[in-house]
Amino acid sequence: MTQLIITGVFSALFFSSTFVLNRAMSLQGGHWLWSASLRYLYMFAMFSAWLVLTGKSRLLREVFTTYRKNWFFWTIAGSTGFGLFYSLLTFSSSFAPGWVVATTWQSTILATPLVLLLFGKRVPVRGILFTLLIFTGIVLVTCEQATAASWKETLLGILPVLAAAFAYPLGNQLMWEARHGSIGIIPKVESCVLDSGIGRVLIMVIGSLPFWVVLTVVLRPPAPTGGQLLNTAIVAVFSGVIATTLFFKARHLARTPFELSAVDATQAMEVVFSLLGEIVFLGGAWPGYAGGAGVALSLLGLVLYVRSQAVAD
Rank of each mutant, 00 (worst) to 15 (best):
L174A: 11
T142W: 12
Y168I: 00
G127W: 04
G127L: 14
V123C: 01
A148W: 08
E177Y: 01
L156F: 15
A178T: 07
A149P: 00
T142A: 14
V125K: 08
L117K: 12
I183L: 12
L133H: 03
R179W: 06
F130Q: 06
S150P: 10
A178N: 09
K121M: 13
I198T: 09
L170V: 06
A148S: 09
Y168L: 08
V205S: 10
I183N: 02
P124M: 14
A146Q: 07
H180C: 03
E144S: 11
L159N: 04
L117T: 12
I138K: 05
V201W: 01
E144D: 10
V193L: 09
E177F: 02
T131F: 14
A167I: 04
V125I: 12
F166V: 12
I198W: 10
T131W: 08
N172Y: 02
R122C: 06
L117P: 02
L132F: 13
V205Q: 15
K152E: 13
M204V: 06
D195M: 07
A178R: 11
L162A: 11
I183G: 01
L194S: 05
G184L: 13
T154F: 04
P187N: 03
D195I: 00
L133W: 06
G127K: 06
A178P: 05
L117N: 05
I158H: 02
L162E: 06
T154Y: 03
I203E: 11
P169F: 01
M204K: 04
F119S: 11
M204R: 09
E190L: 13
E153I: 07
E177N: 05
L117R: 10
G199E: 03
T147Q: 13
V141T: 09
A163K: 03
L117Q: 10
I198H: 08
V201K: 02
W176D: 15
V139W: 07
L133K: 02
G127V: 11
N172T: 14
L174N: 10
I128P: 06
G157V: 07
